[in-house]
């Protein structure tokens, strides 16, 4: 891995977006992912290599999050730094030089209006090369099923923050299973645990966005 690529990965890990960004405090005035990615492209570094830097940086900050060494604000800044990279990579996706790994239908289940965690997952998953179809919040089961049918081969992510909406999550998982048995489903949110995920018949559970990426990379065939 070249020094420049390592720098991009480090900026993602630290959430350094660009030179103007005041965050993090100890990297003020230093270039961020925006400038470094532009430089990498100009130097002819392949977009696939740059994408790997995204994975590396997000993996590291995700691990820190799992160890309670960083918290939601830092993770959001990391995702923003990664999105700055993705802006530069968009033309490569459009030209077919980079291919999305697959499609991920994501939404907060019916009866729940919380979206910060879902948005965080969306940003991180998208930054790892997946196309995210974000259905928003308070999403009814029928809308999830329609989206799955419109996007063959996709995976589904369901989010809930309220204890009371976990019942809706379970109903949605069952209904998707019935209509589309082969689709992979991952669930998450503050009240959700591995046990409750298993009980409701989901294929995966993750307490953090990076876990959703790992699930997708391992469970969904990339085509």
């Amino acid at each position: 891995m070249s020094e420049l690529i390592k720098q991009i990965a480090y900026c993602i890990e630290r959430g350094k977006v660009n030179k103007m960004s005041p965050f993090p405090n100890d990297m003020k005035e230093q270039p961020g992912t925006d400038e470094l990615t532009k430089q990498a492209i100009e130097e002819g570094i392949g977009p696939d290599v740059i994408l790997e830097a995204c994975n590396d940086g997000m993996q590291k900050v995700g691990d820190k999050f799992g160890r309670n060494e960083v918290f939601v604000p830092e993770l959001l800044m990391a995702a923003k730094a990664m999105n700055a990279v993705m802006e530069h990579l968009k033309p490569f996706f459009a030209a077919g030089n980079l291919k999305v790994k697959g499609k991920f239908v994501l939404g907060t289940v019916a009866g729940d209006l919380h979206d910060i965690g879902k948005n965080l997952v969306s940003m991180v998953v998208e930054g790892n090369g997946w196309q995210v179809i974000d259905l928003g919040v308070d999403v009814k089961t029928e809308k999830f099923i329609s989206a799955v049918k419109e996007n063959p081969g996709c995976a589904v992510g369901l989010s809930a923050l309220l204890t009371t909406t976990m019942a809706n999550m379970e109903k949605t998982v069952s209904a998707i299973r019935e209509e589309c048995p082969s689709v992979k489903i991952i669930v998450g949110g503050a009240p959700v645990t591995m046990n409750s995920a298993k009980r409701m018949g989901a294929d995966g559970y993750s307490p953090d966005p990076q876990g959703a990426v790992t699930f997708l990379n391992q469970s969904v065939s990339i085509g």
């Binding site: 729940d112 910060i116 997952v121 998450g188 503050a190």
Partner: peptide
């Protein structure tokens, strides 16, 4: 345990 309070 830190309660993260986010909807994933």
């Amino acid at each position: 345990t830190i309660i993260r309070g986010i909807a994933l």
